[in-house]
């Protein structure tokens, strides 16, 4: 395949960025999108240019490091991560626009790499349980109803990639935060911090400068792990419950 790539290039956080156009040839449809970018970078290095910086780690769709807005879609046209997107989703001769996640809470560090540490601080605010660490506990020690386990697992699938924020017209982190809150709040292990978790995580989310939810549903459409939009509804419910309880105390 022969492709024209228009890639966001930005020297550093303070620099002005712009789209640059590159041609790549001999791309196999079986390559992943990141492998295609590797080909581009080898080409750039050979010609003495600065390679394009982009985030990646596991390349198996589980770590959440890869990002990229491809032709206006977070993680591109398929519902998967950029590392699991294959070039067969494109056609020979295509022009592909590649941009970084856009949100003021995710400032660009270089080219396609953004700073997602705001997510870490939301997790620090309450995305954990208080439990003695050590060997894994006996699985039957704390029974969890099947429906609750399924609900927790569905939300635990969130890999924290930030596609929801990138896709949201308001740069909101509601889907990410709700996935983390719901995952822990439904389980007995998460019960001791049930109220403080949701209140503190939402407060931190606001403090990081993410936008609010206008229920456009873009986040859930972009999510490579299929976290549903009703996740946000469940978090709103938890937040209102916690606020009422805090009001009584």
């Amino acid at each position: 395949m022969k492709l024209t790539l228009r890639v966001w290039r930005q020297k550093n956080a303070g620099a002005e960025g712009a789209m640059s156009t590159y041609e790549v040839d001999d791309i196999s449809p079986d390559m992943s999108f990141l492998e295609m970018l590797d080909v581009l970078n080898e080409q750039l290095i050979l010609s003495g240019e600065e390679p394009v910086a982009f985030d990646h780690d596991c390349r198996e769709g589980i770590c959440g490091a890869c990002s990229l807005v491809i032709n206006g879609d977070a993680h591109g046209p398929e519902r998967t991560t950029t590392c699991q997107l294959h070039m067969r989703s494109f056609r020979d001769g295509d022009t592909i626009d590649i941009e970084p996640w856009r949100a003021s809470a995710f400032p660009v560090i270089k080219d396609l790499v953004v700073d997602r540490s705001a997510f870490d601080r939301i997790i620090q605010a309450g995305g954990y349980i208080t439990a003695p660490t050590g060997a894994a506990p006996e699985a039957h020690a704390t029974p969890v109803p099947k429906a609750d386990a399924d609900f927790a697992f569905e939300h635990a699938e969130c890999i924290g990639c930030g596609a929801c924020v990138a896709a949201c017209p308001n740069g909101a982190a509601m889907l990410f935060t709700s996935a983390k809150v719901n995952h822990l709040n439904v389980l007995p292990q998460g019960a001791p911090e049930r109220e403080t978790r949701v209140l503190d995580m939402v407060t931190q989310m606001d403090a990081e400068g993410f936008g609010g939810c206008t229920l456009t549903g873009e986040c859930a459409t972009a999510c490579p792990k299929g976290i549903p939009l009703v996740s946000i509804t469940s978090m709103n419910k938890e937040w209102l419950r916690a606020t009422r309880k805090a009001g009584k105390r």
């Binding site: 032709n71 856009r102 017209p169 740069g171 936008g211 609010g212 206008t214």
Partner: peptide, 15 residues
Amino acid sequence: RRDIRARPSKYVHKK
């Protein structure tokens, strides 16, 4: 206001 501030730069590729 908060929403607009949270997303100051638009994507070049619009959908």
